[in-house]
Design a protein around this nucleic acid. Structure first.
Length: 502
RNA sequence: CGGGGAGUAGCGCAGCUCGGUAGCGCACCUGCUUUGGGAGCAGGAGGCCGCGGGUUCAAAUCCCGUCUCCCCGACCA
């Protein structure tokens, strides 16, 4: 019996059996999203979008405190705007969706065909540096207008060859911050500050430990002088770039001529930055925290943190049990896990067997599921299932619920971060020092990150990429000083994080 | 775009070799039983067997074409 229950709770396949397929199974089983209707595009379902909305809420709060204001720019960008920055064009040209017509007509066969070509085709934004730059040009006259700190929440389109739900989709949701500064130092400081915001968001809210660092030239954002990244390691050892922040120098200022009257009475170009996180983060949550029973959502970003499952037996008790659940919900919602973030509690009273409802929430990764029946009410206690420890139910007296739950959720949040951190620290390798060791390590399909010196030559990057599909994820900030012989060629270099990536 | 695999009920699959008009498990609906820790029995609904053409008395099955999806690479948040 127990064996049967245990066996059937597992997803097919398990992580060990086939990680990529497991990932897709979780996304489906947890009702996060579907790839449907259009190749590479997602239908994001409430439980998946809800996570993104929590991320969004938190991020808006943080950038609001930093003085960033939200704006919205058009989905379409004139081709002429895109054309202005050479590196930018080169970087995005291959994946741009282009709108060339503005009408459909029926042909002789009764098929709808595009008609009425546009004078100037427009592209669907792959990112908005160019169009926002064109506006900033008009909004910035003086150094007194700086810094200008803008952000937008938007969808963008990059026509990808190989889509993966959440991780790499043709259309995705993101925020893109765009700032303009009087000085180089101001812009650089901004990009580093946002980079740190991302690191903190990943660790604290998503319970994902990341390696902050700088991208090598080969992985820089098209048009950027410097790109900073937070790199997360999935359970299969592969990297996900979980957030990026770019110091754009004056590249976009030049191409859009964003100039201002400076303090000396002269004319200067602004220095700009851009930074973004996307719905990819939802995929990272799945791949970092998921287990063979399904998803595990960190409480701070869970659309519902506590799910109350009333047990109905078709008798007189049902109404009493349901009302008790509603009362618990009301009371729990007066409490907070973090200041200002009141608990999100759901009563799942759908007409389903209680066990089915419970397992559905386990699959979806709700942090805490509490079943409530008449017997519990009589005894004055309920038993809670915490998603990070399914084996051990937690007995809580009903009177203590609202006091106990914030702490329980904090504990779950902390334990998810601790597990992910332990996994990263246990698997990341600092002892790979030469090509033989490098090869031996990356022959394993689930090989984790290697931290080892790199001589800074593109040739060595190419060797790693061609032979093992390994790239330099970043030059980490915290070990940047450690020098040594390049792990590929032996020439002196500085420490880099090597790994396969999504 | 290269190399593999696969399209049959909502999900997972069998049937195809050897043509005979569609099945299993889960889910769903109804009834009865059971009753707080992934219930049992009985009944039921649900399919242009990816699409188009061909062969044939007859095609899920054979032939040709085509589309789509998945996995592994190259490109990327």
């Amino acid at each position: 019996m127990a064996e049967k229950a245990k066996k059937s709770s597992k997803l097919t396949p398990t992580r060990a059996e086939n990680f990529p397929e497991w990932y897709q199974a979780v996304v489906k089983a947890a009702d996060l999203a579907e790839m449907k209707h259009v190749r590479g595009c997602m239908v994001i379902r409430p439980w998946g979008l809800g996570m993104w909305e929590q991320i969004r809420r938190r991020f808006d709060e943080v950038i609001g405190e930093l003085g960033v204001e939200n704006v919205y720019f058009p989905l379409f960008i004139p081709l002429s705007y895109i054309q202005k920055e050479a590196d930018h064009v080169a970087g995005f040209a291959k994946e741009m969706a282009v709108v060339t017509h503005h009408r459909l007509e029926l042909d002789e066969a009764g098929q709808l065909v595009p008609a009425a070509p546009l004078n100037e085709p427009v592209v669907v934004r792959p990112t908005s540096e160019t169009i926002i730059g064109e506006s900033m040009k008009g909004w910035i006259d003086s150094y007194r207008d700086l810094p200008m700190l803008l952000n937008q929440w938007a969808n963008v389109v990059r026509w990808e060859m190989r889509p993966r739900v959440f991780l790499r989709t043709t259309e995705f949701l993101w925020q893109e911050g765009h700032t303009a500064h009087e000085t180089e130092a101001g812009a650089l400081a901004e990009s580093l500050q946002m980079h740190e915001v991302y690191r903190e968001l990943a660790a604290t809210w998503l319970a994902i430990p990341v390696i902050p660092g700088e991208k090598p030239a080969s992985e820089r954002f098209p048009g950027a002088e410097r790109s900073f990244t937070i790199e997360a390691m999935m359970q299969d050892g592969k990297a996900v770039q979980a957030g990026t922040s770019h110091f754009l120098g004056q590249n976009f200022a030049k191409s859009a001529d964003i100039a201002f009257s400076d303090r000396d009475g002269g004319r200067s170009l602004v220095w700009t930055t851009s930074w973004g996180i996307s719905t990819r983060l939802v995929g990272a949550v799945v791949m970092v925290h998921g287990d063979d029973d399904g998803l595990r959502v960190p409480p701070l970003v869970a659309p519902s943190q506590v799910v109350l499952v009333p047990i109905a037996r078709g008798g007189e008790d049902d109404a009493r049990v349901l009302e008790a659940c509603r009362e618990m919900k009301r009371e729990l919602e007066t409490r907070s896990m973090k200041p200002g973030v009141t608990l999100r509690v759901r009563v799942d009273a759908r007409d389903r067997r209680s066990v089915d409802r419970r397992w559905e929430w386990v699959r979806k990764g709700a942090p805490v599921v509490i079943e409530v029946g008449a017997r519990d009410l009589d005894q004055g206690t309920v038993s809670a299932i915490r998603r990070d420890d399914l084996e051990n139910r937690v007995e809580i007296s009903i009177g203590d619920l609202s006091a106990a739950l914030p702490a329980l959720l904090e504990d779950i949040q902390a334990s998810l971060l601790a597990q992910a951190t332990t996994d990263l620290e246990r698997r990341i390798r600092y002892d790979v020092v030469d090509l033989a060791g490098f090869e031996a390590h990356f022959e394993e399909p689930d090989a984790a990150f290697v931290v080892a010196p790199w001589c800074s030559s593109p040739e060595c990057e190419t060797v790693a990429a061609d032979r093992w599909s390994v790239s330099i994820r970043c030059i980490p900030f915290d070990r940047a000083g450690e020098a040594g012989p390049c792990v590929i060629c032996g020439v002196a270099g500085e420490s880099a994080v090597w790994g396969r990536s999504y």
